[in-house]
């Protein structure tokens, strides 16, 4: 099957900076694909390479089997939802949404009908005559979405689209975006630096660092089997433990990722044995359903995420930390 988007050894350099460095990537049609990484990791540049705002320094890009490099953005059947929405301030909402159809020469009546349908899809009917400045952040976000979707793109690119929204609205939009994508069947490529957003929405996630893709996989794979220390640390703050520490607790002589929620905490008195260690509590953070306990064991900081019902633990307490034999994941790469 042809990939929706295919990167073949693509690089994009800005002078000495390798923003995108030899990236190989295949995104399947109809997939919800997330690009996750810290800022400056190259994920946004990858998105801009697909949109056509950037051209690769070297390598080959295909969109549904057709060569994309050298093609200007206006020739690509790909649309973008911009981070700050980039709505046209001098046009009303209807004209903003109908813009793509207008420049393609669709008759006024037809494009207004389609634009109204798109506004209906994002639940913004009745806002046609307003200006972008009269809408809230969440509403602008929906307009940007409608403006892109009305063109029926082959691939929809979303550049941190929820970054400017508050938490509640962001969670609501995550659900709506996911539903929308499933119903429309359009390939979504979603750039974010928020790991929980990527894990909860995407079919597959690519982890970026320093212009390279470190790991690609389903959210569960990435979370449970991080390939490198970077991935383990970036995706859902894990305990990254060194080989010597692991050997002392009966583990492998390798760097290991141990998720905070897999560790159980028990009061002093239990004998530390295999897969257990005695530790001193350094701080306690109540977070509602769970309580985060930071502890130190033989000079190694370990974070524990325990249900808040487990009982009181105070700073300075000596406790025993335990985990099942299969709880940790040994990483193949130390980088």
């Amino acid at each position: 099957m042809t990939s929706a988007v295919s990167f073949q050894h693509v690089s994009r350099h800005f002078g000495p900076v390798r923003a995108v460095d030899d990236v190989v990537l295949d995104i399947a049609p109809g997939e919800f694909f997330a690009m996750l990484g810290p800022s400056g990791s190259g994920k946004t540049t990858c998105l801009r390479l697909i949109a056509g705002f950037e051209q690769p320094t070297s390598g080959h890009i295909e969109i549904f089997g057709e060569t994309a490099e050298g093609l200007p953005p206006y020739r690509r059947n790909v649309n973008t939802v911009f981070q700050d929405y980039a709505l046209f301030p001098h046009m009303n909402i209807l004209d903003n949404v109908a813009y793509g159809l207008m420049v393609k020469g669709v008759a006024r009546q037809a494009r207004q009908t389609k634009a109204l349908e798109a506004l209906d899809l994002v639940e913004l009917k009745g806002f046609e005559a307003r200006r972008p400045s009269q809408l809230s952040g969440g509403q602008r976000q929906r307009v940007a979405l409608a403006r892109a979707l009305v063109n029926e793109p082959k691939v929809l690119l979303l550049d941190e689209p929820l970054g400017a929204l508050d938490l509640k609205l962001r969670e609501q939009m995550q659900v709506e975006l996911k539903t929308l994508q499933r119903n429309l069947g359009i390939t979504f490529v979603f750039v974010t630096h928020d790991q929980s957003e990527a894990l909860s929405m995407a079919d597959r996630v690519a982890i970026f660092n320093n212009g390279k893709i470190i790991q690609v996989g389903a959210p569960k794979d990435i979370y449970e089997r991080p390939r490198t220390r970077f991935v383990a640390d970036f995706v859902g703050s894990s305990n990254v433990l060194p080989p010597d520490f692991m050997q002392r607790t009966g583990g492998p002589g390798k760097w290991v990722s141990l998720r905070p929620e897999k560790i159980t905490i028990t009061a002093r008195g239990m004998t530390p044995g295999s897969h257990a260690v005695e530790a001193t509590v350094t701080s306690v953070h109540y977070q509602g359903a769970v309580t985060r306990v930071n502890a130190e064991a033989a000079g190694q900081a370990i974070a524990v995420s325990a249900p808040s019902s487990f009982g009181a633990v105070n700073i300075g307490d000596t406790v025993t930390l335990q985990w099942p034999a299969d709880a940790f994941h040994a990483m193949e790469d130390e980088a």
């Binding site: 056509g52 206006y74 649309n79 911009f82 980039a86």
Partner: peptide, 22 residues
Amino acid sequence: PANLLEASADLGAVPRQTFWTV
């Protein structure tokens, strides 16, 4: 803002159209 010009091109406007409409 530069991203308005990008948005216009992204939506299929050739540079001439971007000039006159944005």
